[in-house]
Simulated scan of single mutants.
Amino acid sequence: MKFEKIVLTCLAITLFNCKSSQIGEKKAIAPKNVILLISDGTGLSQISSAFYFKDSSPNYARFSDIGLINTSSSREDVTDSAAGATAFACGVKTYNGAIGVADDSTTVKNLVEIVSKKNIKTGMIATSSITHATPASFFAHTFNRGSTEEIALHLTQSEVDFFAGGGLQFFNKRKDGRNLLEALKEKKFMIDTTALVDFSKIRTNQKAGFLLAADDMPPAAEGRGDFLSKATSLALQFLSKDDTGFFMMAEGSQIDWAGHQNNGPYLVSELIDFDDAIGKALDYAEKDGHTLVIVTSDHETGGFTLSAQIKKRADGTEYSDYSQVGMSFSNGGHSAALIPVFAFGPGSKEFIGVYENNDIFEKILKVTKWRGQD
């Protein structure tokens, strides 16, 4: 009899736990908004530099849900930014150089095309030209990332609601003589080619676009300043004003360029600038409670390493000073290293683990439940 009571008690506890687990699953909140922050060319060492060279605590330290992605493209072990961003934007592995097309060159729908049909607002920000590989993959479809004028035309035909970056010349100084700024205005865009503005000045506009450099934006340390953080904050205000939900992608483009140049100070300044933008996104998400923030990169660039600083003795011989961090590079190209993924907010647990880069697209659609009639 005593044994039967013990068995019954164990069964009751098991059933209660199962029921509690099911209730917990039913209560899982689907994020209303998604902010995807991409630091081009950034691996773990680049991220680590913020912990040594930033004057304040890095915003990377605010995450607890972290994963890793394999970034290889469909034909190459080492990806480029076009294939890497297409994986994020469209959920497919494709060949290096491809924008929004699959390995067989067929067009694949991107997140902007999928969610805009559900009245979800979308925004793109980059410290490069807005026609550059990463932002382009979220609104364009071309066989070659170098088709910048074609990519600019695709932006005028997309459902993007907000964008900010460089690339003005691809809209108003084109080989075909067309002025795409007029086409954007016909699509209800407020266009500014001089500076970001206060939200109050665009609150009533249906769409807003900022093209603030002829081609790429200047480096943060050479005139761009805190454009990325300000544009991120402005986009969050603009995209959330109708409370219908939004998807936003913001890229710290020039961390990659610094890696290609093997320029440590340039890299660190761009990485810290990107970390500041992460702070804006996390502050918004913490206050809002319905926003998922994902931070990752398309690939690592330069084989960047943090190591003991190399110094010289009086006799000219070198030694490693372990009390100071130095920076070094192993190459001038991309690498195949696994890339960290940081997530915060409802649905963030889905991004823990080791998976392929195109799984980020699937995971976003899964946790938001945005997949449907698309």
Rank of each mutant, 00 (worst) to 15 (best):
G41P: 00
A208Q: 09
F344H: 12
G67M: 07
P218I: 03
T194F: 03
L8Y: 07
C10H: 07
S158P: 02
G333I: 02
N205T: 11
V92D: 04
A140D: 07
A102L: 05
R203T: 04
S74H: 11
K185A: 01
S105W: 08
F63L: 09
D315S: 07
K369W: 05
K185E: 09
A28Y: 07
N357W: 08
E362K: 15
Y52G: 06
D276V: 04
K19L: 15
S297R: 00
I114G: 06
Y95Q: 13
G289N: 00
E4P: 00
K173N: 14
Q373E: 15
N262D: 07
K2V: 05
T368H: 09
D226Q: 12
G279W: 05
K280M: 10
D242E: 14
L15N: 13
I66Y: 02
K5T: 04
A98G: 13
S72L: 06
N70Q: 14
S200I: 11
S297L: 01
E270G: 03
M190Q: 08
E300N: 05
Q46F: 01
S129P: 11
D276R: 15
A250C: 14
D321W: 06
D374Q: 14
D359A: 10
H299N: 09
F227V: 00
E270Q: 02
K311A: 08
C10N: 12
G167V: 06
I339S: 06
E186N: 11
L11K: 07
T148F: 12
D77E: 14
K311Y: 10
G123N: 11
Q324F: 10
T305I: 13
P265K: 01
G279Y: 06
K19S: 15
K117H: 15
I69H: 02
Q254A: 07
Q22C: 10
G97W: 08
S253C: 08
N33F: 02
D104F: 09
A164V: 00
K175V: 11
R62M: 11
T296D: 03
Q206L: 09
I278V: 12
L111D: 08
K175P: 08
S328F: 09
D243L: 07
T193R: 05
T148S: 15
K5W: 02
D283Y: 05
L212G: 00
T317G: 03
V7P: 00
E318F: 08
F16R: 05
W370T: 05
S81P: 00
T14C: 13
S56Y: 10
F361L: 02
F210K: 01
D216Q: 08
I130E: 06
D65Y: 13
S147P: 00
F247N: 02
L155E: 04
V293F: 00
K54D: 12
A12M: 08
Q237H: 14
I29R: 11
G97L: 06
